[in-house]
Computed example of a mutant assay.
Amino acid sequence: MIKINKKLLAICLCSFALQLWALEKSTLSNGFDDEESPIPFDTIYNHFEYTPYYLVEKSQDIYYGLSGGGQGIGYYDLKNKTEPIGWPLTSSSPCNASNDDCVEPWWVGRWSEQEFLEPEIKKRLNDYEITLPYELSYGDEVADAIGCLEHTPLRYGDIDADSDSELVLFLKNTLVVFSPTQEKVVFSTLFNYPDYITWQTLIDAEMYLDDPDANTPQYASLYEFKKDRNAIIGYRGYSKLYVQDFDNNQNVDLVLWRKLYQSRLQGDSLKGFEKLSDSYLHYKKVDGAYQLQTGTAPETVQGWLTANNLSWQKGFPSKSECDGQEGQLIPEMHDALLNDPDVLK
């Protein structure tokens, strides 16, 4: 008779289940706005003369709140009526007024240098003075938010099974994990980089462009069009998160799989985009915050995903939360126009 190590089996099953649903909306406590539940907002205003943009309940009469600009977290104890506690989400600049030669890194206004971004995107941000600070969408931007994830921008739960719950935020195109225990952001990724707009849209906007030829991109840069109305080649970038004990050391790891694409040219036989890169990144929690493990080879991380049968569609986020599309794949992240077989499986 074969003996089963029940403890090891439980760890394996827990890890597998964690990866599958730890970050899904249904397993986290979802936040709410003042229309959904006005009473705590009114109570906060009556006591503190301030109203957060969004709240999520930690326990009875105790809440975490997201500021209106999407750049801070508040802690509200309505049970004891103590003064609120506030924490910034954004990092401070390593530059100071006395150092004129210091160039602010791209991640200022976000997490830290631990956040990964492809060299092509960083170069574009630098060359065209584009910034990507943490911020909430407003107006039509909210309605168009990818997968409608930002319709619930604040959530609460234990994402990595360490008995210490985190706040999960969707701020425009960025997924942010904030630890109230550590009082800081412990992980962040730009999971959607939608820097593309059709060439025809530029023409319709009455930009004075030459007629497109074979070397003209099919899609131009949306960010640069909005900023300076320039026409440069468009990019699309996405990332998926996987939560599991990949290196079998009894501690949960975060694996990030990122993809970057650029527009194909008008003369290409294929329509849409071509892949520039796949990036495989390993994060491990150190002193309460996740740190990028630069010593873990990309091939090793890719091997972990393959060995665990974790495809692109099994990463987070993948499922739409839009009305009438709940549970379906988010179209942009699994688009046939990406011309990438990975996204279709």
Rank of each mutant, 00 (worst) to 15 (best):
T27F: 14
K7P: 00
E326T: 13
G234I: 05
N248A: 11
Q262N: 15
F225M: 12
D247I: 05
T131E: 14
A231K: 06
T27C: 01
H334I: 09
K122C: 04
N339L: 09
D211I: 01
L338D: 10
G72W: 13
W106K: 03
E120K: 13
K81M: 14
K6C: 07
P331E: 14
K285E: 14
K172I: 04
V343H: 03
E36L: 07
V56D: 02
T296Q: 08
P153H: 07
S318P: 03
D340P: 04
D210G: 09
Y156M: 08
E24C: 07
K58M: 11
R124N: 08
T90C: 12
D33E: 04
L132E: 13
Y242I: 11
G237R: 06
F246T: 02
D33Y: 06
L154S: 03
P133K: 10
I44T: 05
T152P: 01
T306Q: 12
S179W: 03
G147L: 10
E83W: 03
V108C: 08
L270E: 15
W111I: 02
Q114V: 01
E183F: 00
G272R: 09
G327Y: 14
A297N: 13
L28Y: 01
L9G: 04
E206M: 00
K184Y: 00
K25R: 13
Y138A: 09
S263F: 07
L125V: 00
E35M: 04
E118N: 14
W21R: 13
S165R: 14
T189R: 07
Y156K: 03
L338C: 11
S239V: 03
D144Y: 07
W304Y: 15
